[in-house]
Design a protein around this nucleic acid. Structure first.
Lengths: 158, 158
DNA sequence: CATCACATGTTATACTATAACGAGAAGCGA
DNA sequence: TCGCTTCTCGTTATAGTATAACATGTGATG
């Protein structure tokens, strides 16, 4: 089971790799990876943490890249639609995807204290629900799996 | 695996039973099942559907049971905290619980068309996530599992 | 170079939720 | 019964999240 999140890791490399994947993905799919979109992804990547749309907007505004809500929501829509970021429903917030390119049914571990988000690229978590759905003739199109709790670091601190 | 939702069923009985369970639960736990709280639960029970807080508020307002947002949010907090209702994160909306009394880690099937919500009282859906969390030393406190798609009826209609 | 699709800028507004304060009502021990 | 605490309720104001709608710009393609 792949992982990433609550460990120390070479973060600048982690950012770089993801940005590279993103560029490639956009080239492949003929998508426009504009400055705004690029910057929003960078902002998300800076922290393995869920950021609210307005938090991101503040940064963009400081940098002169857009000052109104639609700006950031459009960039986020783009990133989410193309699998470069995910929306965390539980928090009305957004995180960079840490498994670009694999088409995934992600599950998230959300620390309620430090808001760090760890993504499991696993469709496994969903098969039980799938089974249940089948019984009822329900056609699943998307599954949200979000676990909230305490990450190792915050767990110790407490 | 227990179920309920996309079938025809004796709805008035289904409401009555749930209200009875709620009354009993409140007596047992010495909770005050006030008129407002009771009415909000009834409103939720009327439909196996996720209702927004303001939708509920409209009904309350028409009936003179409260006109301001805090009224409905307080009632919903009470119901959710005591397991009589659930919040659907995906929709920022609320549904009556269909498995009162069992302490559950519910999973939901949400029809994106008719907004009907079916609740599976299953901690099964979560075990995979639990495994993943264990690996990472994460302490899970709550898991949100919400599947979105098309229910049998809407599936046929399409 | 005309045009079409898409990206951006901007204003206004809708929807969701909570903070904060004061007044009433119920439970409980002295 | 009194006084205390705790919970419930009413109300105002405001915070936080998201989108509709319309105008403008820009780049790719035929």
């Amino acid at each position: 089971m792949p992982s990433l999140g609550f460990h120390h890791h070479d973060h600048s490399q982690c950012i770089e790799e993801t940005m590279t994947s993103a560029v490639e993905l956009c080239r492949r799919d003929k998508l426009k990876f504009t400055a705004q979109r690029r910057r929003v992804l960078e902002i998300l990547l800076d922290e393995h943490r869920a950021l609210g749309a307005y938090e991101i907007l503040e940064v963009l505004a400081r940098e002169g890249l857009g000052a109104q809500p639609p700006v950031v929501y459009r960039a986020l829509d783009f990133l989410v639609k193309n699998g470069l970021a995910h929306r965390i429903e539980r928090l009305n917030a957004y995180v960079a995807c840490t498994h670009v390119d694999s088409k995934h049914a992600p599950a998230f571990l959300i620390c309620r204290h430090c808001k760090t988000v760890s993504e499991a690229d696993t469709s496994l978590a969903t098969w039980r629900v799938g089974l249940f759905a089948e019984v009822k003739g329900f056609k699943i199109e998307r599954v949200v799996v979000e676990a909230e709790g305490l990450c190792p670091a915050c767990s110790e601190a407490a």
